[in-house]
Every structure is written in C-alpha cells, then in structure tokens.
Amino acid sequence: MGLAAMPYLLPNYYVSIATQVLIFAVLAMSIDILAGYTGRTPLGHGAIFGTATYVTIYWATTLGGSPWTRMLVGIAAATTVAAIFALLAIRTSGVYFLLLTLALGMIVWGVCLRWTSVTGGENGLRGAVRPAFLATHASFYYLVLGAVAVITFVMWRFVNSPFGLTLRGIKDSESRMRSLGYNVPLHLFLAFTVSGFFAGVAGAIYAMFNSFVSPSTVALTQSVAGLLMAITGGIGTLFGSFVGAAAIISLENFVSSYTERWLSVLGLMFVLIMVFAPEGIVGRIRMILDRRRG
C-alpha cells in the first residue's frame, strides 16, 4: 500500500530513487539466483545488464520501432550474452567462476568502450526510449512497480520449483547430484541463462528510466554493486535484494548530499554487515524469527 501511495506522498526525486531501487533489486535478484541458489558467485552481470540497456537505446536511436520491440530486442541480446557466458563458465566453480565471469564482463566493457561507431565510446548513447504516456515520474514508477511485482513472483516460483530445488542440491553437493543422475552442466547453463534473462529485463527497464547508457553501465563496478546489494540483503533470500538495493541506493543518494566521503560510509556499512550479519539483513531477521519460534 505504501509503495502504491508513494508518488502522492513524496516529491518526484524520491519517486525516482524508489524506481531505481526497484530496477536494481531485479538485477540483485538475478545475481541471487546464481549466488544464493546455485552456489556460483558471478561478477559479470553488470555486463549482461548493460548489454540490454545498450541494445535497447541503440535500437531506439538508430532503428526506431515501438518501445516494447526495443525492450524485447534488448532482453534477447542480454539473454544471448548470458548464454555465451554460461557455455564458457559452467565448467568452473568458486573463485575460478568469479574470475571467468569477471573477464567476460571486462571483454563486454572493452567492446562498449572502444567500438565508438556503434556504442559512442566514452560518450555513450542517448535516446528517448520511454513512450509519451510514461513521461511523468509517477506513471513510470507505477509501470516499474507492476513489472517488478510480476518479475518477483516469477522468480520466486522459479527458485521454489523442482528445477530450483535441483539447483539448491547442486549448491550443496554437485557430485551427489551427478551420482543421482542429474545433468548438472545443463542445469547450470539454464540457471545462468535464466539469471541473465532477468538481468536483461532490469537493463531494458533501466534504458527506459535513464535514456542514456555509457561504458560505466557495463563496468565491473555495476557487477560489484549488484552483488553487494544481493549480499547486503541476504544471499539466498530472494526478497533481501530489495532491502539491499534500498540500503545501497539510499546511502548513495542521501549520504552524498551531506558528505563527500559517502563511499567511506558505504564501505563502513558493508564491514559492519559482514561482521554482525554475514547472512545479510533479511537473512539475519529470518534467523532471529526462527530462534524465537524454535
């Protein structure tokens, strides 16, 4: 109810921040599918997210078409990139998976930075992706709220489906799942591709939100930010991504207006969370509630 009433209660600046929180929560949830439910921590989802943004805006500025076609093409491009990443990465695990996804993300960043004729290089791409009826902050916020509600429900069903339970089994013991006859590489490939699909959805919505994309959108910092949002909220707790995204984006926007050293405040927050609540904010709350029940 509070989320629905927000545009009527708060100025447009706060509505814009809330919209950003919802978009990056989807990115964080997509990372949580791999990190929390499959046991593979990726550092390349910023590149997948940014690919959707780049393709959506490029399609809008160069090829025209309806806003929904642009978004679908952007999501398809991101899913394709995720599938390519998955084919290369499924044989690795742990720190090697992290490094490989980092390297693949850096390749995408390098291409976006250097291919100036298509991506605009450091200048980026600017394009009006939003249709006229979504021009106001409130109308766009409601669209994003509705879309994110549907996406969250689909993701929740996905991780609680038999396929999702198989992923948890793979996270617990890959060799056990292999000996039980499960096709572990195929499950990992599909999990990565589905995760990339949702990251692409977030990227396409971000293209509508920002109407501008630059290499920083596909950079390592974007991947790290998404991962930190998932960790802060609680890895393995899908809804923790909302808490993590809200915490980090609020800190970025509000603390920076009071001090130049807002990055130090952000870093201190992460240190405190890792020391006192390593399972994340939502994970910690769940632990406390379980202890009281039990």
Binding site: R91, L100, L104, M106, R114
Partner: peptide
C-alpha cells in the same frame, strides 16, 4: 593496431584459459 580490440586481447586469453582449464593454466585437482 586495432584499439577496438584492446580489452579483448587482455581478457580474452584469460577467459579462454579458464574456459578450457577450469582450475587455471597449471592448476591440478587436490
């Protein structure tokens, strides 16, 4: 020669090595 490929040249080999030798170039399973 091709500045467009600069980051590909740096991170491409790293990605290929890890893709075909998941435990690193000289890595061995424990």
């Amino acid at each position: 020669m091709f500045p467009e490929l600069a980051y590909f040249v740096i991170f491409g080999p790293m990605a290929l090595i890890l893709a075909f030798r998941p435990l690193g170039l000289f890595g061995r399973a424990a």
